[in-house]
């Protein structure tokens, strides 16, 4: 008995009878919810807003209504300076749909500066974003790890209350 399964080539599929094609047309409106709406409003104003857990006292960015570790309600809001250090970085040569990019882009996790944090905690307020003004070689050589960065904001009139109100994080 052979192994079940018959590989089909793309061209073979085009000629095959009985193939069904279907295009979904699903559109969504995602609610940002309560805490994230405040975060997005802060971005429009050029601010990075976090929230403290009433129980473990950690600062959460992105802010949430509850701390998922303690499962307790979140407390006071804190405005952070927005500065931080590069936690990890990579260089993308492909788009979201895997098309080759003309210019590679550098993406990173930013460990944000926050009161009470030393900078080596396993859990930290952070942002996932692009880096600008950084070369591929600097990323590959490990030079950007730990680098000090700050947000480069879009001009006030262009901000829409979106994560893209920050154009990228840049070194300073």
């Amino acid at each position: 008995m052979g192994i079940p399964g018959r590989y089909v080539k793309e061209e073979e599929l085009k000629r095959m009878a009985g193939v069904i094609e279907y295009k979904p047309t699903a559109k969504y409106a995602y609610s940002a919810g309560q805490a994230l709406s405040v975060f997005l409003k802060g971005l429009r104003e050029g601010k990075i807003v976090g929230r403290t857990c009433n129980s473990c006292r950690r600062i959460m960015v992105p802010p949430r209504e509850f701390c998922e570790y303690c499962h307790s309600p979140a407390g006071e809001w804190v405005e952070l300076p927005g500065t931080g250090r590069v936690e990890t970085a990579s260089v993308s040569y492909i788009s979201a749909r895997r098309a080759k990019l003309r210019e590679p882009e550098v993406v990173a996790i930013i460990r944000l500066d926050a009161p009470g944090y030393r900078g080596d905690e396993p859990d930290f307020p952070g942002i996932f974003h692009r880096l600008c003004g950084v070369t591929e070689e600097e990323v590959k050589g490990g030079k950007v790890f730990g680098a000090r960065v700050r947000p480069r904001w879009r001009p006030e009139g262009e901000r829409r209350g979106s994560i893209t109100d920050i154009e990228c994080f840049e070194r300073w």
């Binding site: 559109k27 919810g33 309560q34």
Partner: peptide, 14 residues
Amino acid sequence: GSHGEVAHVEGEME
């Protein structure tokens, strides 16, 4: 909402 306006973001099946 309890902290002001609640935002929405639109998306589509890609």
